[in-house]
């Protein structure tokens, strides 16, 4: 209910934050919106010794269209994404995160850095083949989504790195579908599916399917993608492809969903998401 004690540094620049992180050592943590970290700290499941608050770095906020893609500042809130209709499925997914109060504080960078496979945005980034730009004292690097999510709550970000930007291709002409299955509106996804489809001449030119909470990291449903790509984009083919949505997955079970049930949900939700995406792509 109450976090353990920590020291607090308010960063006034990215470089300042990096310096403070380095100085704080391995138990230093970045604080953005705080909506992944503070709940854990209140339950004392996370006990950082130093918090480096980057919440005031306005240069890390904003959504820009650049070179045929989207550059989203890491501190951009879910609420901003939700209100940016041009972002399509990203806006839709953001609008379904938790509740409005959480969306007003939570940030895209924080969500991705936390790497929770039950969160909405990691699976979306993976489906987009997006990336993050991360900066450390040693400079900047771009990490592809496929390389970012390593394991449960584990990313390839170094302890001394800060995500500055999230990059996504615009995927012009793609239709999209987003299916999030929860017990209650404000819950994390039991299973979530994002589908992106590009059609040409009645067939499926390209398809990307991201899965949420079907493993320790977000996943791509590659078998289902392969089953649909290049073929006709009709209901029958979509249904057949969706049957492969859970191939190879080992989803974590919990009190409300066994792994088998989650695999079943993934197949149903994938079909539904693909149907929406195909309709939007037509």
């Amino acid at each position: 209910m109450i976090p353990a004690e920590f020291d607090y540094v308010r960063a006034d620049s990215v470089d300042g934050a990096l310096g403070a992180l380095a100085e704080g050592g391995e138990d230093a943590k970045l604080l953005a919106g705080g909506h992944s970290l503070l709940p854990l700290m209140k339950l004392r499941l996370a006990v950082p010794t130093v918090l480096v608050d980057i919440g005031g770095l306005d240069e890390l906020r904003g959504v820009e269209r650049e070179n045929g893609g989207w550059r989203v500042g890491a501190l951009t809130t879910h609420a901003t994404l939700q209100d940016t209709d041009e972002l399509g499925v990203v806006a839709r997914a953001a609008s379904l995160i938790a509740d409005q109060q959480v969306r007003n504080r939570g940030t895209i960078g924080g969500s991705l850095a936390h790497g929770d496979p039950a969160s909405d945005l990691p699976g979306v980034l993976l489906a987009f083949d997006g990336s993050v730009t991360a900066r450390s004292g040693g400079g900047e690097r771009e990490i592809a989504a496929a390389d970012l999510f390593q394991d449960y709550l584990t990313t390839s970000l170094g302890a001394d790195e800060v995500i500055t930007t999230v990059n996504m291709p615009a995927l012009e002409g793609y239709g999209w579908g987003y299916e999030k299955f929860t017990r209650r509106a404000e819950d994390w996804a039991m299973v979530g599916v994002v589908a992106l489809v590009k059609a040409s001449g009645g067939g499926c030119e390209d398809v990307r399917i991201g899965l949420t909470h079907m493993g320790p990291t977000p996943l791509r449903a590659t078998a289902a993608e392969d089953a649909l790509r290049g073929g006709p984009l009709d209901a029958e083919r979509i249904a057949a492809a969706a049957e492969h949505a859970a191939d190879g997955t080992e989803p974590p079970g919990d009190a409300n969903a066994t792994p088998d049930y989650k695999r079943h949900l993934a197949r149903v939700l994938t079909r539904r998401a693909l149907e929406s995406a195909a309709a939007g792509a037509a």
């Binding site: 607090y8 604080l31 705080g34 909506h35 503070l38 709940p39 209140k42 609420a79 409005q100 109060q101 959480v102 007003n104 504080r105």
Partner: peptide, 9 residues
């Protein structure tokens, strides 16, 4: 904007 003040320092 609405926030949950139990999750803001």
């Amino acid at each position: 904007e609405s926030v949950k003040s139990c999750t803001v320092l």
